[in-house]
């Protein structure tokens, strides 16, 4: 496996939003790398800053709404400071994106084919025939059945899973160095999800494309990624391989996150019974708030913390 050489290097990234009544630091100084040929997962809940980071990495954060500092190095260039024209040249060829909602990522008035080859239209000077050939190949690589026929169809004629594959085809057609996926499977059915993940793995293996995979779903990330970064409230709280993160989480937040993943090992009723039994043993503190987080921990400690959480605005 290729390794060592970093494809993407993010150093001390700070992102601050100027919204008059909600100015805040979305990202508070994070650093990480995506090594060449690897799949890195960036996980976090809403408000963690993972999507903002993703947008910053592909240069899609409007510069007048946010101020960014730090470095985002791709191919030796700092994407945050290079001139717009250079950035535009890289977007769609060196770095491509697959978004969450395939239904709205594609133009409903254009056929599929031209949209898949659009990147080639913008970044190369290939002729029509060549572009179409490349598009068909990309669509085949993305596991789309009968690309010739799909080429001339409109987005509304395809299912969510097929559309997402078209997006992936459009993203890999220019053989990017970095493929950024922002929750690409969240809007899809569970069986389709599994197929898309396999597809991404194959692309990574066959073409050596590095992938930065953003998700809130730890299970998905566990299956796909070679290393995982956990974000919480704008900070990178933990990083490691899936094995390390799942079996030996170090940080409190990571542990909570993992404990909260629905799994087939614990039933809610058992957890509630356990909580009740434990609460009965300790002195009741009169705090009757329901819905405490399940982690089977010793009583007392967490009850206070969680109930404070449900009470205030971050609940």
């Amino acid at each position: 496996m290729k390794g060592g050489l970093a494809m993407l290097e993010v150093k001390d990234l700070h992102i601050h939003f100027h919204d008059a009544d909600a100015a805040h630091d979305a990202v508070k100084g994070i650093s990480f790398t995506v090594p060449d040929g690897e799949i890195v997962g960036l996980v976090g809940e809403s408000g963690s800053g993972k999507s903002i980071t993703a947008m910053a990495v592909c240069g899609l954060l409007p510069r007048h709404r946010a101020s960014l500092s730090g470095e985002v190095m791709l191919n030796g260039k700092n994407l945050l400071t290079i001139p717009r024209s250079e950035l535009r040249a890289m977007q769609g060829s060196d770095i491509t994106v697959v978004f969450q909602e395939p239904m709205v990522s594609l133009d409903p008035c254009m056929k599929i084919g031209p949209q898949v080859e659009e990147a080639l239209l913008l970044h190369t000077d290939l002729g029509d025939e060549e572009r179409k050939a490349r598009a068909l190949k990309a669509m085949a690589d993305a596991d789309l059945p009968d690309p010739e026929r799909l080429y001339n169809k409109y987005p509304h004629e395809l299912s969510g899973g097929m559309l997402q594959r078209c997006m992936i085809a459009a993203a890999i057609i220019s053989d990017p160095q970095l493929l950024l996926c922002d929750e690409p499977t969240t809007a899809l059915d569970v069986t389709i999800q599994a197929e898309i993940l396999k597809l991404l793995q194959r692309i990574n293996k066959e073409k050596g494309t590095s992938i930065l995979f953003i998700s809130h779903n730890l299970n998905v990330v566990k299956k796909l990624c070679t290393s995982i970064l956990v974000m919480h409230k704008g900070l990178l709280v933990e990083r490691g391989t899936p094995e390390e993160i799942f079996n030996h989480p170090r940080e409190e937040y990571t542990k909570r996150l993992i404990a909260a993943i629905p799994s087939r090992t614990r039933k809610i009723r058992d957890m509630v019974d356990a909580e009740r039994a434990a609460a009965d043993k300790t002195a009741p503190d009169g705090n009757a708030l329901v819905g405490n987080a399940p982690d089977g921990n010793a009583p007392g400690g967490n009850a206070q913390g969680i109930s404070a959480e449900t009470g205030n605005l971050q609940g």
């Binding site: 809940e45 909260a260 509630v272 819905g291 987080a293």
Partner: peptide, 17 residues
């Protein structure tokens, strides 16, 4: 979010009870 999900599931169960 997954941590909140867990809380709500707990809540539903307790209310059901």
């Amino acid at each position: 979010d997954v941590t909140i999900q867990a809380q709500i599931l707990h809540l539903l169960y307790e209310l059901k009870e």
